[in-house]
Design a binder for these strands. Sequence first.
DNA 1: CCGCTTTTTTACCATTTGGTAAAGTTACGA
DNA 2: TCGTAACTTTACCAAATGGTAAAAAAGCGG
Lengths: 211, 211
Amino acid sequence: MPDSAAPKTSRIQQRNRKRILDAALDVFSQHGYRGATLDQIARQAGLSKPNILYYFNGKEDIHVTLLNQLMDAWLAPLRDIDPAGDPLAEILRYVHRKLDMSREYPRESRLFANEILQGAPRMAPHLESDLRPLVDTTAAVIDRWIAAGKLAPVDPRHLIFSIWATTQHYADFDAQVRVLMDDAPVHADAAAFLETVYRRLLTPRPPAPGA
Amino acid sequence: MPDSAAPKTSRIQQRNRKRILDAALDVFSQHGYRGATLDQIARQAGLSKPNILYYFNGKEDIHVTLLNQLMDAWLAPLRDIDPAGDPLAEILRYVHRKLDMSREYPRESRLFANEILQGAPRMAPHLESDLRPLVDTTAAVIDRWIAAGKLAPVDPRHLIFSIWATTQHYADFDAQVRVLMDDAPVHADAAAFLETVYRRLLTPRPPAPGA
DNA sequence: CCGCTTTTTTACCATTTGGTAAAGTTACGA
DNA sequence: TCGTAACTTTACCAAATGGTAAAAAAGCGG
């Protein structure tokens, strides 16, 4: 019976693992992997350090668990682009979802940013195995939309990069944005701005008549 | 004679300070402030740790020196936007210069990215005193251009953010870009893409005839 | 209520890290 | 070439950090 064994995770185990991961998300996203300490995570989680090491095999284990767990949620909006939908609407919806995630999950955004900034030492395999195929198929979808004249021609991969960059900027560089935008409705304005950017960029225009 | 004293910095002092700062740029940009160690910097610089502390007052001193020193170079392209020039050309030139800097000075880009990501603890004063006024005046220039009908209307601050985000992305998220763009001419393609983006976004179009 | 498993705490430890003291070495002007 | 100031090295620390051992304390099915 290697399969249907008893429920491996007790109530208390589930609660504490969740607490630890939430605290770790706070600390890792703020200080990066090497800057975060188990003591900080323990304090934030309201547990002792050895107790944390009862639930996880070490600092790296916590970090990797977080990364794996978040990867899916992070890529969901890209996965949800519907090849059968209206091209411009699909892209704009994607932009807005990514921007919303920047606002609602800034810790997750910064965790990834930190990891990529340092060369993705603990995430490279996932980029290759999860992200890359997803980007490949999405780029192919966009290329088909362009070929069908439904979108103005652009490089689909750089388009995706620009969407990531512009939306995540509001989470990752929040400290800077905040200095430059004292109490303006940043998120709403950003949404309007990005809507304009991608609408003007992608709206197909009829070929100039002539020749 | 508090002013025209003897040359404070000997040849050897200049050389070693430069070595240390260059090594520190390597290490800080790769691991972030807390992740960097004096031993790493020392090894990279080819000096002993105490010798490094002969030239700088401590780890933080090195970091702050780097940040201050780079701030100017980093903001130069923004400062060079000419209010009397052709609006679209000025913006596009700015975009290309920023993109070039991403390629030629990725360490500097990552150093700043790390600092901002962690809340700009050692740079907040500079953001307030240097960056903010510069962005304010640049935004005013762009607003005037828009009012004069030389650019399509957009929020100038979010425009600046988007330029920063899209150009620095290629340095800061290089690890990700590299996974997704195996041996394509990333920089050239990015330049063409961004040219298209900002040209389509900012080219003023005559108001639709009607009413 | 008992006995066994799961969870938590207490008390440590080895290594790393930023930093210092002080002795030694080198450069260089008089 | 000699003396002094600039520079470098050797030998250390104290604190912080990731991690462990083992005892104590809860939980919990019977």
